[in-house]
């Protein structure tokens, strides 16, 4: 269990805030495999919403549905009170969704700085033509956005690796850079797929602190997939529990912990 001041934040954020995204009856199949079976849950403004479940439960698939990478066979996604039409992933990104990946997906040939700057692509509007000539608006935009990115670099304490090619970084730092790239987009919803997997205790503590700070300081809504139960119970306001593509629990950490189905399906067999 990691000691964080999370308990103070785990107020009833989930129950009182307006719904930001509502997932209704999502079903996703890959051929014969049913990865997600008729799942519904909502994500409320400003909360940290965890998705937990054993390996292969369908958590990453759920995130991929939310970010538009997988198209569910059934179900609706409502965002800010409107039904989301079928969209390409880059269009979903424009709505204000940013994410990290279970298997780090950074751009290895680029520097840390350029990776994070890429996260701001929807904030930068200057045309190909003005970028080609690097005149007024293009240069101004570049400098302004660089200033924003520097704030994130300071926030995540990665100043000294700014110019390092990402491919050369150790695993833990890569995860942090990936978070930075997602934060650079100033997302409405931040989707984190196992941000602490494979980290040592110290790195995990740092990552917990960053996630809480992001939620607290910027009010960013966060959807978090995580296997470490201690982390989940500490950080999240509400938890969805998945097992074999089904939803078997949904509620505050305490409620979920007390749910017998969850205990038998997941908590009992956890720590694998």
């Amino acid at each position: 269990m990691i000691a964080t001041p999370a308990a103070e934040f785990s107020t009833d954020k989930g129950a009182t805030r307006p719904v930001l995204m509502d997932l209704k009856n999502i079903t996703l199949r890959f051929g014969g495999v049913v990865a997600i079976k008729d799942i519904s849950f909502d994500i409320r403004e400003g909360e940290i919403r965890a998705i937990i479940g054993p390996n292969g439960a369908g958590k990453s698939s759920m995130l991929n549905v939310i970010s538009g990478f997988y198209v569910p066979q059934q179900g609706e996604i409502w965002f800010e009170g409107q039904k989301r039409p079928p969209m390409k992933p880059y269009q979903v990104a424009r709505l204000g969704l940013a994410r990290t990946f279970q298997n780090i997906a950074l751009f290895d040939g680029m520097s840390v700085l350029d990776n994070i700057m890429t996260g701001r692509l929807n904030k930068m509007k200057s045309s190909l033509f003005s970028q080609a000539l690097w005149w007024g608006p293009a240069e101004r935009e570049e400098v302004e956005n660089r200033a924003q990115v520097e704030k994130i670099i300071d926030f995540l304490e990665i100043q000294n690796i700014r110019k390092t090619p990402v491919g050369r970084l150790p695993y833990g730092l890569k995860k942090r850079v990936e978070l930075a790239r997602a934060l650079a987009a100033e997302p409405r919803i931040l989707l984190l797929d196992e941000p602490m997997a494979g980290m040592n205790v110290e790195e995990k503590e740092d990552m917990c602190r960053f996630i809480l700070d992001v939620n607290d300081e910027f009010g960013t809504t966060i959807v978090l997939i995580e296997h470490d139960m201690g982390v989940v119970m500490d950080l999240s306001d509400r938890v969805v529990v998945m097992d074999y593509g089904r939803k078997i629990g949904d509620g505050t950490p305490d409620e979920v912990r007390a749910n017998p189905e969850v205990i038998s399906a997941y908590l009992g067999v956890a720590h694998e």
Binding site: S67, G68, F69, K88, P89, Y90, A93, R94, A98, R99, F101, A105, L106, F107, D108, G109, M110, T118, G119, L121, N122, R181, A182, A185
Partner: peptide, 12 residues
Amino acid sequence: RDMDIAAEIIGV
């Protein structure tokens, strides 16, 4: 060039 799927998901 480096990772086309991730690029699209972050908005390219």
